[in-house]
Each structure stands twice: as C-alpha cells, then as structure tokens.
Design a protein around this nucleic acid. Structure first.
Length: 387
RNA sequence: UGGGGCGUCGCCAAGCGGUAAGGCAGCGGCUUUUGAUGCCGCCAUGCGCAGGUUCGAAUCCUGCCGCCCCAA
C-alpha cells in the first residue's frame, strides 16, 4: 500500500517548471510558498528554491497558546514558526510571518465551537483551507506579485479541457483532497501542489538531502489548535456557557439511559464515551438534539443512511458524464452516489448512496469525485435513515 | 416478620460439587491532518457475610444481612 522507502524519485525534483506548472524559464518568476513549519511545506520551499525562481515563504501564525510550544506534530505556532524560519534561512529565501491569530480564532476556532454547540460535527481543516490559507494567504501572494502560491498539500492539479482540475494525490494513503474540495476555480488557477505526485517517503528523502531540520519531524495529526486531543476542552474554553448536561435517550424506546455533560462531547456514529452498560449490543450516537440537550442513541443498524442533503455546495470544473462517488470522511473509500440537484454555486444538493453509508454526521463534508477528480462537495445538513 | 424468590466484575448475565463463560461499559494500543468507526490487548485468587460438610463448594447444609414478590 505505502510505497517502498527506497523508491526512485517519480518526478525529477529539479524540473521546476513541471513541479510548479509554470512556463519556462523560471528565472524571473516569483513563487510564494505557504510554510507551516512541517516537512511537506518545507520541501515545497526547497523545490521552489531549486527551481531558479524567486521564492518567498509565508507563515501564518494561526494561534498561540502555551500548549502549542513543544507539541510535536502541530503547525502554525511557536516551534513550528521557528522551524519554518530556520528552513527559509537554510534555503536562502525570504520569509514572512503574519499574525493571523485573531482572524483564525473567529473564522475557524469559534466557528468550530459554535458548530459543536449546535449539535453538528465540524471540520476546522476545511474552514481553515477556505479562509486563512486560500483566501487570505492567496491575497497576500497576489499582492506580492507572485506567479503562483504553492502549498504542501497532497493533491494534484491537472490541466483539463476546461481549465485546471483538482485530482487525488498519487499516494492514496496521503491524499488530502477531502479537505480541499471547496477550492474555487479562481484559487485553483493560482495554486500549485508540487507534492501531489510524490509518495511521502520521497518527500522525506528530499528533506534529508536538502539538510532540512524538519526531515524527521512527525506528521501533523489531529486538530492543530487542540493541544492533547481534547477538543471538548477547547470548545468549553471558547464558549464556556455552552456545555449544558442533558439526557441520553434511546432512539427507539425513548428510554432515558443516562446523562451526559454536554452535547459538544458527541458526534453521530460515536460509540465510546457513552458510559451506558448492561446492553446486549453496543450503542451508537444516532442523533443530537442540541436545543433539548439530548443525545440520541441506538444500535448500529440505526446509523445506516441512504441519502444526505448538502448545503453550500461548490464545484470545480464541469460535472462529467460518468458515475460519481463520494467521501463522507477523510479516510474512506469513495462510494457510489447519485446527485439530485445542481452541484455548485452554494446551492443545496442531495446525494443518494448506492449502498447504505454509516456514521454520516451533520456538519461534516461530503466530497464528490469522478474517478480521481474532485468535482466538488458540500456540508452535510441532514441525513435520511436507510432503516 | 406467614409463604415464595433472589443476591456472581461498574451494568446485564452463564455456571448448579471439580477448581469463575460471554456481552455492555471502562482502560491501553494500532490506525488517522476533522469528529468518528474499526481492529488488537487488558479488565472477579473470587461468586452478600460467617460457619460447616467434602480430597475439592459460586455450586450442598446452617445462621445472619440485604433486596423483591405474594398475603386475609
């Protein structure tokens, strides 16, 4: 599944024009690289520096709390900014750090908390890509007169008949397309993802070859602004008034099985943490009634969903005339779906699953694929039980 | 205070003389740039308490304690 460690480089990393999809010569071109302080974006910066173009690294400081410092595998604060700076120094490229903490707090963290309070399950990474990264950083790169904005995302940009298209990464284990479905056509014109065609192992090889201090840095995981995996703590600190206790109710019988310390601790499809024993089979969260402070639970078969309504849909390029698939979570094989409605322009669309899908949570994203190509997606507003 | 039933891990529950199943919950790990799911591992030297019978008892006997039901 994962490529061998000692593979040859699939793309010559000296071919800057191909990697950054810019016309030759690169001398005189200006590439802005979004540097998070991790291995991936550091390698992008290195590749850009090798290309002959002028390179400017930009790091957004997104948050700053004590726990961020010293935490391995985070991004965009404290040590990571120092790492980014050190890499830039090593590569001899310009590097700017912008304090984006207040905007990030409003656009991503508070929104994240409010979604949980409303009984939904948010994906801050997508909001972050939509806002700080691909809107704000995008504007900065434009102002700097860049020819493109390159990031370390594992996703491919390919030229199609109707313009640039977004495709899944070459390395399926690293594919990040799920988090990027909301990229607009205009953003995609300007964006570049040089790592989309490489296996992760290769990226680390390059980092080592370039002598980057981040070569062995752990991959980021979890939510970057949640220190120790305890996202509920973050929600409580942002919205202290939000976590009200309530009842855990059986979806079918209506029986009150227990109590909980706040709807924010639960997501549809969740099994653990209910603390309800004495049952013949496991109970899963089947729904969340935020206004009533109720968590609804039931057996696994009640999680089966036949369709989902998506809102605020977006589309990248034309809708191809071929079977479509969808992912309802980042790690999942895309499953066959049919679309009812017109995808894109923020309109509402219903996707119907060919086979029942389990654990579909409102607030999550559904991303639509045509083969390897991402054609768009939207936020899951409601689901239809398959029964 | 007559009769009947029951007390086994936090919960549910097997076992009915041969040396404590299983499920749920919980805990730990793997996986993972969202939340989940999933998978693997751990989880009662002891069966309400105290005696007794027996080579051997959660299982038999006695007493006590605690629940539940029936009762003019």
């Amino acid at each position: 599944m994962s490529p061998p460690t000692e593979s040859k480089l699939s793309v010559p990393f000296t071919d800057g024009a191909a990697l950054f999809q810019l016309p030759e010569p690169l001398v005189g071109k200006r590439i802005v690289v979004a540097m998070s302080g991790g291995v991936d974006s550091s390698v992008v910066a290195a590749l850009a520096a090798r290309s002959g173009a002028e390179v400017i690294g930009i790091t957004l400081q997104l948050y700053d709390h004590g726990a961020a410092s010293g935490r391995k595998g985070a991004c965009c604060a404290g040590d990571d900014i120092r790492d980014a700076r050190a890499v830039a120094d090593r590569l001899g490229i310009a590097h700017y750090v912008f304090d984006h903490a207040s905007a990030f707090r409003e656009d991503v963290i508070e929104r994240f908390a409010d979604e949980y309070l409303a009984g939904r399950t948010p994906i801050p990474c997508i909001r972050c890509n939509m806002g700080p990264k691909f809107t704000d950083l995008f504007a900065m790169a434009r102002e700097l007169g860049a020819d493109c904005l390159a990031t370390g995302h594992y996703v491919r940009r390919e030229m199609g008949a109707a313009g640039p298209e977004l495709h899944r990464a070459f390395d399926p284990a690293r594919d990040q397309s799920y988090f990027l479905y909301a990229t607009t056509q205009a953003q995609l014109e300007f964006l570049r993802f040089p790592l989309g065609g490489m296996p992760k192992a290769e990226v680390r090889q390059i980092a080592e070859a370039e002598g980057l201090r981040v070569a062995a840095k752990p991959d980021s995981q979890d939510i970057c602004f949640v220190p120790d995996g305890d996202y509920a703590k973050v929600v409580r600190s942002v919205r202290p008034e939000g976590a009200a206790p309530g009842q855990i109710v059986h979806t079918i019988s209506g029986e009150i099985l227990g109590t909980h310390q706040g709807v924010i601790g639960f997501t549809v499809g969740q099994r653990r943490g209910l603390e309800i024993g004495g049952q013949p089979e496991p109970l899963y969260v089947t729904g969340i009634d935020a206004p009533a402070c109720k968590v609804l639970v039931g057996p696994r078969r009640m999680l089966a969903v036949s369709a989902a309504q998506l809102i605020e849909t977006s589309r990248i390029g034309p809708l191809p005339d071929m079977p479509l698939t969808a992912k309802v979570r980042s790690l999942a094989k895309p499953v066959p779906v049919t679309l009812e409605g017109s995808l894109g322009d923020s309109s509402a669309v219903t996707i119907r699953f060919a086979a029942p899908e389990y654990g579909v949570a409102p607030g999550q994203a559904a991303v639509i694929y045509a083969g390897d190509r991402i054609v768009g997606g939207g936020w899951i507003e409601t689901t239809v039980a398959a029964i």
